[in-house]
Structure formats: C-alpha cells, structure tokens
Amino acid sequence: MRIVVCRLDEFPPGERRIVRAGRRSIGVFRVGDRFYAINNHCPHMGGPLCLGRTKPWVTSRGPGDFVLDTEEALLACPWHGWEYDLATGQSFLGPGEPPVRTYEVSIEPENPAAAPKGGRIPGPYVADTFPVHVEDAYVVVETTPRPAAVPGARAAGGAG
C-alpha cells in the first residue's frame, strides 16, 4: 500500500505529519532533507510515539568530550521518554525490547503530463445520459438511453 502524504513544498524541514494506513497510524518526519516514517505506537507501553520530541544523537570519546549531531534523528516517547532511532526503530532504553516498525519514504516527481485535467481521473465506467430539452416552460428528460458513448468523442447537440 502506498500513501501520498503531501506535496514536498508543503512539508518543510523539522515538520512531522501523522497519516493513517487502514488501522495503522504512521508518523512521517522531515529532518533536514531526509525523511523517516515510523509506526505511531510505542512498543514499551503503547503510547502515541510520534507526538514525542525529536533529539539529536550525542557521541562521546571520553569524560567531558561530547559531540551533538546536527540532525534530530532520535524520537522520545511522550509517555516514558524511551528513545528510538528514526531510521531503524531501535530502542536504546529497553534491552530486549522490539524495535518500532519503520517504513520506506520516497520523493516522487510530479508528472504534469500524467495529471488529469481539472482534477478528474478517467475511469472505465460510462454513466447513462439522457438528452434534456425545454418544451415551452417545462424541462424534459428523454428516458430512452443514448447509444454508448465512445471515449474521447463529444456528444452532439449541447446546451441551447
């Protein structure tokens, strides 16, 4: 199943969106120019994980020496603060805890040639249409069906 979240220009860096896929709730995060998607269910206690704070990685080579990463790639559950890696779903606070499910995110170019005109998507179905005309002061619908329409052909007549 594929889910279109939004247009790229409507999703600035540092933002998150929570989308639904059937019964699943998925958080989509934009960190700089990277995108992450992670299940919105904390495996620890079932909290709404994607409502939590994002944090950067901190690395250290020894006492008093630490480096803060420039991108916030950790997600802390708002209920108990357990942290998960946005890329892998791995937890670092619960030994043996299962990781949170993560999902692939892709950016797909808009294809104006394939976009339907006027927002309409042609389908395989054809509705029955009936000619309408005005007689004196009455609008009349002709109930004898027209012959099947040929895709791309315009109906004869029209509004008068």
Rank of each mutant, 00 (worst) to 15 (best):
F35K: 08
G123F: 00
G152M: 02
A73V: 11
Y103V: 04
E72Y: 00
Y103A: 01
V100G: 00
Y103K: 07
V132N: 10
G119A: 06
R24D: 08
R16S: 03
G64N: 09
A21Y: 07
E135I: 11
V4T: 13
A73P: 03
M45D: 12
K55P: 00
C6G: 11
A21C: 11
G118W: 01
S60Q: 11
P63N: 10
L51E: 03
P98I: 09
D9M: 10
A156Y: 05
V28L: 00
G119Y: 02
G123V: 06
L93D: 14
P151T: 05
L8S: 15
T54E: 00
L51I: 00
F130C: 11
F29T: 00
A137V: 09
T59V: 08
R120V: 11
F66V: 07
V140Q: 11
A137S: 14
V141C: 09
G14M: 02
S25I: 02
T70W: 09
P12K: 08
R2I: 11
R34Y: 03
V141R: 11
D85N: 07
V100T: 01
F29S: 02
P151D: 02
G32D: 05
Y103L: 01
N39M: 09
G96P: 03
A155V: 09
F66N: 08
G81M: 06
G64L: 08
I107M: 08
S91I: 00
H133M: 12
G81D: 04
A149L: 14
